[in-house]
């Protein structure tokens, strides 16, 4: 099966035209920006890295994951995903085409959030790598949630608990002082995203940076494989 950039761009173009007429997606894309404005003063009292990472994680979770899940579950609900599956477009072309628009939205929203909250003094190379890794992981999770959900409304039931845990787990779990919860949190990518960027900013040594990047890399590979596995499963009816 040959990869076709033209097919990928066709799907991405369709997503763009569809999303700008979809008030639900536009509303979701605006939420992290509103959150950044509302929380700017309160987060300023925390350390600089939290002030930066929390809005970024919310943007990635809400736009990168949840919007992606909504778009895919809506395609399933309206039987348009089956039409794509019955076309010559490969799973990779379909999934990358759909993800391209979400990536653009997420990056745009993140940039606005960063402009509102401010960017700490940090190595830009590391910053881009961490953000890209986390974005891929959350988009893959969002895609999986969208494929599992039968309807767009079911996306909230399936996806919100997972995404809330991934975003707010590392922020609030330490306050619970429950070792089991902290052990679980210690595996999730958002925790390593925050720990890694903190290590970069505070110059805590390469070991912590590589450890967190390694964790994100493993999550990236596993979540991508999960998407392909679920997509191939959905191509065939039971």
């Amino acid at each position: 099966m040959t990869f076709s950039l033209n097919r990928l761009l066709a799907i991405a173009g369709k997503e763009w035209k569809d999303s700008v007429r979809n008030p639900q997606i536009l509303l979701m894309a605006g939420m992290p920006i509103v959150f950044s404005i509302l929380m700017k003063g309160q987060l300023s009292e925390g350390n600089a890295i939290d002030r930066f990472t929390v809005p970024v994680m919310i943007a990635i979770a809400v736009v990168g994951a949840f919007v992606q899940a909504l778009m895919i579950s809506e395609e399933k609900e309206k039987n348009t995903l089956r039409a794509l599956m019955l076309s010559p477009a490969s799973p990779v072309e379909v999934l990358l085409g759909k993800s391209a628009m979400t990536t653009v939205y997420t990056i745009a929203v993140m940039v606005v959030c960063m402009l509102i909250t401010g960017i700490p003094a940090i190595n830009i190379g590391y910053l881009i790598i961490y953000i890209l890794f986390l974005l891929v992981i959350f988009m893959a999770l969002g895609t999986s949630i969208g494929l599992i959900s039968r309807t767009a409304s079911e996306t909230s039931i399936v996806g919100l608990p997972i995404l809330l845990f991934f975003v707010f787990g590392p922020i609030f779990a330490p306050g619970l002082k429950v070792s089991f919860v902290m052990d679980v949190i210690g595996f999730i990518p958002s925790y390593h995203f925050m720990e890694g960027l903190s290590a970069v900013v505070h110059d805590e040594g390469r070991e912590q940076i590589w450890l967190s990047l390694g964790n994100l890399l493993v999550w990236m590979v596993l979540s991508t494989l999960l998407v392909l596995f679920i997509y191939r499963g959905k191509r065939f009816d039971k």
Binding site: I11, K14, K17, D18, K78, R82, A83, P88
Partner: peptide
């Protein structure tokens, strides 16, 4: 393939719906 529940993109025009599949089929 045409079934009675074949889906279309509601928020796109007739032409945009079909143009997408023109590009997918070359």
């Amino acid at each position: 393939v045409l079934t009675d529940n074949s889906g279309l993109y509601d928020r796109l025009s007739v032409y945009d719906n079909l143009a997408l599949f023109c590009r997918l089929y070359g």
